[in-house]
């Protein structure tokens, strides 16, 4: 649910990064944070455990520019990926305008991706949203590792509705902005 503020001439949209534990959701946000000019970003907040695992969410506000006199702002959130934090994941999806699913390309995480995608769909439905309708992008992360599943195989299993997909190495920044832009673009298109 975008917030269109005619008084402040601002559009605020929310994008949520979803995916299994340790797939690189926080890394995506960290890269965007480090590469975005000071005047275009707010503070990045990470509510994490002592071992740097996301406990509740990461949050990064970004200002991407002006369109037809309105300042366009995106609020990027990640969910905690670990299975037992499901209650928190559900809360964070509330009011999302777009979702990015970050898949971990490693063979041993194949099942975890599928479970997380199913979990995403369930939690969207509980928030009266749906993967069929919401702007959605798939990112295949960690493509630099040796034990990755071929792209075609991942796509076959994880691509839900012909959404755009991007190969990524989030830790080096590869594919990070492409993924974000593709999702943000879809979100803005829904405002029309």
């Amino acid at each position: 649910m975008a917030f269109i503020n005619h008084a402040a001439k601002e559009i605020n949209c929310k994008i949520v990064y979803y995916g299994p534990g340790l797939c690189g959701k926080t890394t995506n946000l960290q890269y965007i944070y480090t590469k975005t000019a000071e005047e275009r970003k707010g503070k990045m907040i990470s509510l994490a455990t002592e071992t740097d695992r996301t406990l509740y969410f990461d949050f990064l506000p970004i200002d991407i520019g002006t369109i037809h006199g309105f300042k366009v702002k995106f609020q990027l959130y990640t969910v905690p990926g670990q299975v037992f934090y499901n209650a928190s994941r559900k809360l964070i999806l509330k009011g999302a305008d777009g979702v990015i699913f970050v898949a971990d390309s490693q063979e041993e995480r194949f099942e975890a991706n599928i479970e997380s995608l199913e979990n995403l769909q369930e939690n969207l439905i509980e928030n009266n949203l749906s993967l069929d309708l919401i702007p959605y992008v798939l990112q295949l992360n960690k493509r630099d590792l040796p034990n990755v599943v071929p792209v075609e195989e991942l796509i076959q299993e994880l691509r839900y509705k012909g959404e755009p997909y991007f190969e990524a190495v989030a830790i080096q920044g590869l594919g990070v902005f492409e993924t974000f832009k593709a999702c943000a673009k879809q979100v803005l298109q829904t405002l029309r």
Partner: peptide, 13 residues
């Protein structure tokens, strides 16, 4: 979709 976009005009602001 769950809720429509939240649109606020100057008057209400």
């Amino acid at each position: 979709m769950a809720l429509p976009d939240f649109v606020m005009y100057e008057e209400e602001y």
